[in-house]
Design a protein around this nucleic acid. Structure first.
Lengths: 200, 200
DNA sequence: GCAAACCGAATGAACGTTCAATTGAGGGTG
DNA sequence: CACCCTCAATTGAACGTTCATTCGGTTTGC
């Protein structure tokens, strides 16, 4: 039943579709949003140009679906690290580290995300999965406030602050300007925690 | 002499050039990076297409120069709020608020920044002014560490965290999803300060 | 009268998308 | 098993549009 549910949620993606997603993400990372013509995507994915249009209505749809697809993977990380049976503080550190390593190890995706959320697509075709991601994230921080672990600031604010700290650190690591060791990463998380936690 | 210096630094920009910058920023904000043809920029700026090429070598150069131009204004904010004669803690809050209001009130610019730094231009033509911005920012936080006001974490880390918090809050305010009142803004700054400051 | 600034139609390349044609997997029939 | 039919998957050349850029000519300021 667990498997059943996962299959339903993921909607069983075809190999070609996945190859197209992968190529698009890599090319967008290197050449940007513009600068990745469909012909190039096709070549990289090892399919003909026409084939892409069998799976996707247009370039715009391809990009939007890719965003949702990638976002689902980020959602999976949040769901995995925020089970309600684990104490809040422990979950907080696990979530921070989980998302950080996810973004750090998926730099194509990270770059694609940033390009996408600042593009006009976001407004012309609002992505469903992004809402879900933030809903989950904010719910987690609301729990922290409810349980008296966090200061009484809007969960949206705390959640956004936490997430932006993760993103900026992952981008820093990705750009190669600074590589963090385990101790530094713990320092960063602790620093954030000190800010948002309710001192006893 | 004060005036003299400022003029030298700004290099005396022509009205047409400024109009082109303004139009580009507005159009990029609405239509994204792609989706703003030079012809549209020209029309919005009230000049002919060819005129743009009198001032800028190419679209790419226009965008890069615009980035530097905009970045200079952000630099001006940092310089204004981080004079060494004001106590560090007070400067910190002034800087946070100064940059926050700057970004919030210049949403075109904010959006353009985000698009630009995640585009491939950043790597093909590394922007000088971005370096200067971060150099100033990091120097300020280094001062905080040196004066024993901040925890001994790399100034690059603290600076990046602080800046990302500003950006994410300004983006939130810009998107209209949440409008902050003065008390909430103070809460956010305090929260950050609590995280990075050395408890006595 | 001479630069520099400015114009905007023309050019040519690049790109998203289409479509007629081909392949191949499955399945029903005798 | 051979045959045919169907339909989805796939191909890639061709099309039409859009867009950055050019350039010969005109205006403006000095």
């Amino acid at each position: 039943m667990n498997v059943q549910l996962r299959v339903e949620a993921m909607e069983q993606i075809s190999d070609k579709k996945r190859a197209i997603f992968k190529s698009t993400m890599e090319l967008v990372r290197e050449n940007g949003f513009h600068g990745t013509p469909m012909s190039l995507v096709a070549k990289h994915a090892g399919v003909a140009a026409g084939t892409i249009y069998h799976y996707f209505e247009s370039k715009e749809h391809l990009l939007c679906e890719l965003f949702n697809y990638a976002q689902q993977q980020a959602i999976a990380v949040v769901e995995q690290e925020t089970v309600a049976t684990i104490p809040f503080k422990e979950s907080f550190f696990k979530l921070w580290m989980g998302l950080y390593t996810f973004y750090r190890d998926n730099q194509d995706m990270l770059r694609f995300f940033e390009q996408f959320v600042n593009s006009p697509f976001r407004t012309t075709m609002p992505p469903l999965e992004e809402d879900k991601f933030y809903t989950l994230l904010f719910a987690f921080f609301e729990r922290g406030i409810r349980e008296g672990e966090l200061k009484d600031v809007s969960p949206k604010i705390v959640g956004t602050l936490a997430h932006s700290s993760i993103l900026s650190m992952a981008k820093m690591a990705a750009s190669g300007r600074l590589r963090f060791n385990k101790k530094e990463l713990q320092q960063i998380q602790q620093l954030l925690w000190d800010g948002i936690a309710l001192g006893r």
